[in-house]
Design a protein around this nucleic acid. Structure first.
Length: 602
DNA sequence: TTAGGGTTAG
């Protein structure tokens, strides 16, 4: 008989077995260990087939291990795992647990829940190992109803005090948007692990409760019993990113370097995203270029980071590197690539990418990709092409798409298309005050005063108000939030005094307030007062008072910057000799010496 | 032999 190398090895191991051990069990263990050492699914299948021929397969205990080896390794071999599972006549709790876990790892959470149903149907008792996987499946699917049901089973079977189950419950409720339930489970726990804190912190982060997330991190540290691990710190980094808290992000980076050996690709991606979105693009680039191995997430973070800083050409270079490395682009990466073209005005490159996305990479454009393209064409003044693209869309255009066209019609006046876009917007989103103002300004540009007045009247009749704007600024590692027209904060007296001084100096630089975007029907003086109270100006004034001369000011806003704040900030950067970085809803603006990196093209 | 927490767009 010609032996394959694997079988030679098996025989060798069998010959070496300890007579004191159970020879059958030893043989089974050796088979399993050989299977576990296989380097690929092909090798695994071949070895398994040989054991099957030799009659070493069939014991349910070993079958469970085989499923585990196959399903839980990184081969993506769930089909094969399922075929092994299907051959077991009477799968027990362990086999069900393993196949369920495999499906969850393979992100086929629906299949995991179906298998749980089958498990119950067959009368197989779930145990405390079954539930963490199932709860994770509910978390993936945001399936709250199923999550509640499973929590009921957990309670009935008495697993509610199991630490792993509790942590999974916290996570499930968090991912289903029920952070109150997460907190309730956490508060009831007798024993808490770092993973419990991480799950609770991540629950807050996944709901966008960034400040709450940082507060909890502070609580965890002040209790002093736990040392944050990678997962905790990644959630903290994500909160810093969204709050624009660069100093806090830097501290978290320091903590990672001190306490965690060898940062993995997830941490590095979070760090890139944090630095880039907190305004430190160069630091993000440095981490990116030093990464030993990059995945799609890392490329995506870097490409969209370069995009929001207006560095479109570099974003396209990084994209080319990614393709050269053999990584497959996905829909998310193409959003970054197209928005990079849009922010930098790269029209022909954007058109090429849009075509390549569909024809070469077979990615169907979503509404986000169309949004980027309409924005790109509209900014470049190609309004008819943008409108034709909207008409050719395979799905119903949404308000974002029409708003891109309407904004473009203001920059490159086109009354006919503006009225079409405006009409669609008033149908799709009749409560957005900004759209009425935009169209009324377009009428004003075209000297159509009656239409302008009609828009303003419509706005007043509907009683619409703009979403309140806010800006955050980090001073001495603390994030300070200012709401538009803020008068409640104790610092406000000093802030308004500073604004008074700033405006005094601005007048010498020729600043005239641009009140065209003030919605209220009040006199000019009151409109100017409203402009002075814009949150961005309050945040800049606060930073000028509390930071040292020459230091950079970094601001994050929830809305797009208005044209008055843009003009104002450019002049302030010159008068006070400060670099001011503002992240608005769309992109970054680097103000320095009276100019902005967006070249007034935003 | 099995279980928990983390990253990219909008």
């Amino acid at each position: 008989m010609i032996r394959t190398p694997i079988l030679q090895q098996t025989h060798l191991l069998m010959a070496q077995e300890d007579p004191l051990q159970n020879p059958d069990l030893l043989r089974q263990q050796e088979c399993l260990s050989l299977l576990q050492r296989c380097k690929s699914i092909e090798e695994f299948k071949q070895t398994h087939a040989q054991f099957f021929k030799l009659g070493l397969d069939g014991d349910p205990r070993r079958s469970g291990s085989l499923i585990a080896t196959c399903a839980l390794s990184n081969w993506g071999s769930m089909d094969y795992a399922c075929s092994i599972f299907g051959r077991i006549e009477e799968p027990g709790t362990f086999e069900f647990n393993t196949i369920i876990r495999g499906h969850v790892k393979d992100t086929d959470s629906q299949a995991a829940l179906i298998l749980y149903g089958k498990m119950l149907e067959r009368g197989v008792e779930p145990d405390n190992f079954t539930y963490p996987s199932l709860l994770k499946a509910c978390a993936h699917l945001s399936a709250l109803e199923e999550g509640f049901q499973i929590h009921g089973h957990v309670f009935k079977l008495g697993f509610e005090s199991d630490l792993f189950v509790q942590n999974s419950l916290i996570n499930m409720y968090g991912k289903c948007g029920q952070v109150k339930h997460s907190s309730r489970v956490f508060e009831k726990m007798d024993e808490i692990s770092v993973a419990s804190w991480s799950a609770l912190i991540a629950s807050h982060a996944s709901l966008g409760l960034w400040s709450g997330c940082l507060r909890l991190f502070g609580d965890m540290n002040s209790e002093g019993c736990w040392r944050a691990n990678v997962s905790t710190l990644v959630s903290v980094l994500s909160s810093c990113t969204h709050l624009g808290a660069l100093d806090l992000g830097r501290c978290t980076h320091g903590s990672l370097l001190r306490n965690i050996s060898g940062l993995n690709v997830i941490v590095e991606t979070s760090l890139i995203d944090m630095y880039v979105k907190c305004g430190s693009l160069e630091k993000g680039l440095a981490i990116f270029h030093k990464m030993p191995k990059k995945n799609q997430f890392a490329y995506s973070a870097m490409i969209s980071g370069l995009a929001i800083h207006g560095r479109g050409k570099e974003a396209l270079d990084v994209f080319s590197d990614m393709l050269e490395e053999g990584l497959k682009p996905d829909a998310v990466i193409y959003v970054g690539v197209l928005s990079a073209c849009s922010h930098a005005g790269l029209v022909s490159e954007g058109r090429q990418c849009f075509t390549r996305m569909r024809l070469k990479h077979h990615i169907e454009p979503t509404i986000l990709h169309y949004g980027c393209m309409i924005d790109l064409l509209g900014r470049a003044g190609l309004l008819n092409e943008a409108y034709e693209l909207i008409k050719s869309m395979s799905m119903e255009p949404n308000d974002v798409v029409w708003r891109c066209l309407l904004s473009a019609c203001k920059v490159h006046p086109n009354l006919e298309l503006a009225e079409i876009a405006g009409g669609k917007l008033f149908q799709l989103d009749p409560h957005n005050a900004g759209d009425y103002v935009l169209l009324s300004n377009i009428y004003a540009q075209a000297y159509q005063w009656e239409d302008m007045a009609r828009m303003r009247k419509d706005l007043a009749r509907r009683g619409l108000i703009q979403m309140p704007g806010f800006s955050t600024v980090e001073v001495k590692r603390k994030v300070h939030k200012f709401v538009s027209q803020d008068k409640l904060r104790p610092e406000c007296d000093a802030v308004y005094e500073m604004i008074h001084q700033m405006e005094w100096q601005l007048r010498f630089e020729g600043y005239i307030p641009d009140t065209s975007q003030v919605l209220l029907d009040v006199n000019e003086e009151e409109k100017q007062q409203r402009l002075s109270g814009h949150s961005q100006k309050l945040a800049i004034a606060f930073a000028l008072i509390h930071t040292s001369k020459g230091s950079t000011i970094r601001i994050v806003k929830n809305l797009r910057m208005c044209s008055d704040c843009h003009k104002y900030t450019k002049l302030i950067s010159k008068i006070f000799e400060r670099k001011i970085f503002v992240r608005d809803r769309n992109r970054f603006h680097h103000f320095q010496d009276g100019t902005c990196s967006c070249r007034d093209y935003w």
